[in-house]
């Protein structure tokens, strides 16, 4: 197992390096520069390039950049917050996006699993149909529609009616309460996805021979479902949850805009539009890093859930 993890880590490091090179190259080819201000003349631009070391040849810049990253230095922002270190900008914003994403993930998966279980156990009943309808809605309607709806009805209207339970926008001083609405809006897609995948799998598991054997053992229906079925039905769900989690943790632009959340989703889009290269690379870097960590994590989770894919001595 240790050897396996070591190997995976090595591959991950190489992957990260490749991603970094690609990012660097792609941004190099992007038209425009951070200093496209009309008020600047050529000479001033030249000075700025000189100051940030942007006139050096690309391989030299790449070398400087990578060695700096290893020291935790992602450079400075050129335009958004002039000369502020990117690492500091991310320091305050990233935790907010990650926390929101994880909240949505946990809440969404829990509700999704519950819905899927009800739907699968009472297959073809009205509960099943309702879950299906809910899942279709959750998958097909974009999260910002939910976000706007929630913000309007539960945020605005309820506050007007004298029950200021849910703040309409994110409030740094009330991080939990003000994150409820965005969490719910973000989790709709998770709920729908988990419910769909899990229901299908659970129906299959419930019809399997080992469930029949568990029933034949004289276990109560409750034990058959909780002990023997749910864990087995989780395996494919974990697969879809991985990429979904990364998407959630790296922040959703729209949700962050609607609720005024100072996260990184918002920052990334701004950075791209104003050619703040260092910020773009840094965020993309973390995005990829999360992906790789998530993939590794999911492999470990697989092993925990399903002993058949555990990487150890195994069968004989």
């Amino acid at each position: 197992m240790l050897r396996y993890i070591g190997k995976r880590l090595l591959i991950s490091i190489v992957t990260m390096f490749v991603i970094l090179s690609l990012l660097f190259l792609l941004l190099e080819f992007m038209p425009g520069s951070p200093f496209n201000d009309e008020k600047l003349n050529e000479q001033q631009k030249e000075l700025l390039y000189e100051k940030y070391g942007l006139n050096k040849p690309i391989h030299e810049r790449f070398f400087i950049y990578t060695t700096n990253i290893l020291k935790g230095d992602f450079g400075v922002s050129y335009t958004i917050e002039k000369n502020a270190p990117v690492s500091r900008m991310l320091e305050t914003r990233m935790p907010i996006s990650i926390r929101l994403g994880l909240q949505a993930l946990v809440f969404g998966s829990l509700i999704g699993v519950v819905l899927a279980s009800i739907a699968a156990v009472y297959k073809n009943s009205k509960w099943d149909t309702m879950t299906t309808i809910f899942a279709v809605i959750g998958i097909s309607i974009p999260s910002y529609v939910f976000a706007l709806g929630l913000s309007y009805f539960l945020g605005y209207k309820l506050t007007l009616a004298g029950y200021p339970i849910f703040p309409m926008t994110y409030n740094l001083y009330r991080p939990i309460q003000s994150s409820i609405l965005p969490t719910v809006a973000l989790s709709m897609f998770v709920i729908a996805t988990v419910a769909r995948f899990m229901r299908t799998e659970l129906v299959e598991v419930l019809g399997s021979d080992y469930i029949m054997l568990a029933e034949a053992k004289g276990l109560t229906a409750k034990k058959v479902i909780f002990r023997h079925s749910i864990r087995n039905a989780l395996i494919p769900v974990v697969t879809v949850l991985g990429p979904l989690t990364v998407g959630l943790m790296t922040g959703s632009l729209v949700i962050e805009r609607i609720f005024g959340i100072p996260g990184i989703g918002d920052l990334l889009v701004t950075a791209i539009s104003v050619n703040d290269f260092n910020v773009v690379i840094a965020i993309s870097f973390f995005y990829s890093l999360f992906y790789i960590i998530m993939a590794l994590f999911i492999d470990v989770i697989y092993g925990v859930i399903d002993p058949r894919i555990r990487v150890d001595k195994g069968g004989e």
């Binding site: 021979d209 080992y210 029949m212 054997l213 568990a214 023997h228 087995n232 859930i305 399903d306």
Partner: peptide
Amino acid sequence: QDPMTSLNPT
């Protein structure tokens, strides 16, 4: 009938 599928794999 089928011992390959009658035991819970997990």
